[in-house]
Design a protein around this nucleic acid. Structure first.
Lengths: 220, 220
DNA sequence: TAAAAAATAGGTGTTTTCACCTATTTAAAT
DNA sequence: ATTTAAATAGGTGAAAACACCTATTTTTTA
């Protein structure tokens, strides 16, 4: 090695994507993937073993410990490690939440390798990477900053019970059957639904399903 | 090059996964990725330019021309090219349909690189790769082979109109509003819904939404 | 060309979903 | 300790979704 390379870590539950990504990143020359992890918990173990990377490419939807929680954890324990979020979808809520959790950039999985390089370079030299996608979404959200403050700063923003409810909403059960499964009154379920409608600004069960999927609350 | 490598092509709309995959496959030694494509149409163009690969790694959910259609096209025009399906999800219907379209194997995107190599080796030497996943799903389906015959053999199994309907089902529009958008009577929409309920053995709109997502008819 | 299949559209009634109320009990914050 | 907020649960009515019919027109297939 002629000179020290910038250490990168990958966190994603898709092995093939991860390996692939590692190849792409190594091929850039000045970056070096020092380890990979399946999810947040695994990542934390790996940091102990392999030491701190300068940069982490972080998937959002992962089993056990997701990208939000892991990024938040990094912000608290290793604030100098920069996180570049890597997502399947370009939904506004995820972008905002990820930045709130401390990410320094946000790119999609169908990004061109060249843009990936730009992102890495930018984060390493300037400390952030704001793509057109990101700025576009943020500008679109600027009108309702208050809501974002409220939803983005909360750790999970959905209670365990709400997540459980959402998972059941994505099945063919009726609300009455969901109530039985959760050992609650149908009225309470009504309340859960209406609360989520309000929080997420949606009006139908289909809207709930789409939200749950986009945000990885259910795995389709 | 000491000896001729086995030519592989990649078809997937996620550039990073594709590039990564290419790296992994090239690293196996005896395989060589000769080109990549974003979707079926692009793939067909590329075959003209770069010649026939021996093996194609084919994503299922892609824009414009999906994995089913492309595999079917290959079966008709280049029956000697072997297709290994590459999917995000392990849903039974997709596996069966992909094999009906002529795929020789089916692996998930979170497969280990070693298993990918096994799959490639197996398809190249034996002409097929049946993982535990695949055989498991097929055994589970053995009781309703007749249904599979009927749904699997049809070219697309969903008409353009039905796909359009399904996309709208995944929004917060009511069926009446969907009818307006599609310039049809609400009754006709009722018919579309009931036909799909029957075909897919589901009973609710949520079921339709989940089906549409699992099968890439809508991008969440 | 005749028969079969698919796309279109209508009628009617039940169940589910949703909106808009109130109220109690428990947990959190001040 | 007191106020606030959150989880729980109930009532009612309108709209939407679903089930089960029939019937016409167009397209496919035999």
């Amino acid at each position: 090695m002629l000179k020290d390379k910038i250490k990168v870590a990958l966190v994603d539950d898709h092995v093939l994507l991860r390996r692939g990504l590692a190849g792409v990143i190594d091929s850039f020359g000045q970056y070096e993937v020092i380890f990979e992890a399946n999810n947040g918990n695994h990542f934390i173990e790996q940091v102990d073993k392999f030491g701190e990377p300068a940069l982490v490419l972080m998937d959002i939807n992962m089993p056990e410990m997701d990208g939000f929680a892991t990024t938040q954890w990094l912000k608290e324990h290793f604030p100098l490690i920069n996180v570049l979020a890597l997502s399947m979808y370009d939904n506004e809520a995820s972008i905002i939440k990820m930045f709130k959790c401390g990410a320094k950039g946000y790119i999609l999985k169908d990004t061109d390798p060249l843009e990936l390089k730009s992102a890495l370079d930018s984060i390493y030299s300037k400390g952030f990477y704001y793509s057109e996608l990101v700025t576009g979404r943020l500008i679109h959200s600027i009108n309702r900053m208050d809501e974002i403050e409220n939803q983005g700063s909360k750790k999970s923003f959905l209670s365990d019970r709400e997540s459980e409810f959402l998972r059941l909403v994505c099945t063919e059960l009726t609300y009455k059957e969901i109530a039985e499964k959760m050992c609650l009154s149908p009225r309470t379920i009504d309340g859960y639904r209406d609360t989520l409608f309000e929080k997420l600004q949606i009006k139908t069960r289909v809207g709930l399903v789409m939200f749950a999927i986009k945000n990885g609350i259910v795995n389709p």
